[in-house]
């Protein structure tokens, strides 16, 4: 199928979708608004390059994604020093320094929802939301690109300028903090 662009309908057809896409990833309404605007204006410049292989929405979303990655990059380079160090400090005492064994008070305990229909628990969801926001921007960016946008690891590394080994370290540390935050606030 060959897709076509219809810029006269862009805002009506896609603006709310793009806005929601940006907000769920950046949690910042003003910035999300700006990015939607920038996306359409950048798209205008690129109309000639549209080949019709992807749908209009997919094409616009790809432009928005790149803008979101720019935000991740800017935010994480600026805030890197404090937020990552803080987040790393949080997990310093999770494991015994010598053996790597869980320190008992930090060891995983059942949440009590693992085997149930966990997808409907609103209270747990709101705690999860808060715990996600506590992660350093770079960590959350890596996590979102992997688990929500399903980008390959090497793409994420290239876009966010992290090495492959750092990618695995971040992936591990993100989940350790996220899980510990849930345990602390839920149980």
């Amino acid at each position: 199928m060959h897709h076509q662009l219809n810029p006269h309908q862009w805002v009506a057809a896609h603006a709310d979708y793009l806005y929601a896409f940006a907000i769920t990833r950046l949690n910042d309404e003003e910035r999300a608004k700006d990015l939607v605007q920038e996306t359409f204006l950048a798209a205008l410049e690129r109309i000639g390059g549209f080949e019709g292989k992807a749908s209009e929405r997919t094409w616009l979303t790809a432009i928005l994604k790149n803008k979101i990655i720019d935000v991740y990059r800017k935010k994480s380079s600026r805030l890197k020093i404090t937020s990552v160090i803080d987040a790393e400090r949080e997990q310093e005492d999770f494991f015994d320094a010598e053996t790597g064994h869980w320190i008992v008070e930090h060891g995983p305990k059942e949440f009590g929802i693992e085997d149930k229909d966990h997808l409907v628990n609103k209270e747990f969801e709101s705690i999860l939301q808060k715990c996600l926001q506590k992660l350093p921007v770079l960590w959350r960016a890596v996590f979102t690109m992997k688990h929500i946008d399903d980008e390959p690891a090497d793409v994420i590394c290239a876009e966010l300028k992290v090495s492959a080994s750092n990618f695995w370290v971040i992936t591990h540390r993100t989940k350790l903090n996220l899980r510990a935050c849930l345990q602390k606030n839920w149980i």
Partner: peptide, 9 residues
């Protein structure tokens, strides 16, 4: 479970 829940969120 966390991966599933974040996706659902």
């Amino acid at each position: 479970v966390i991966n599933d829940m974040v996706q659902e969120l």
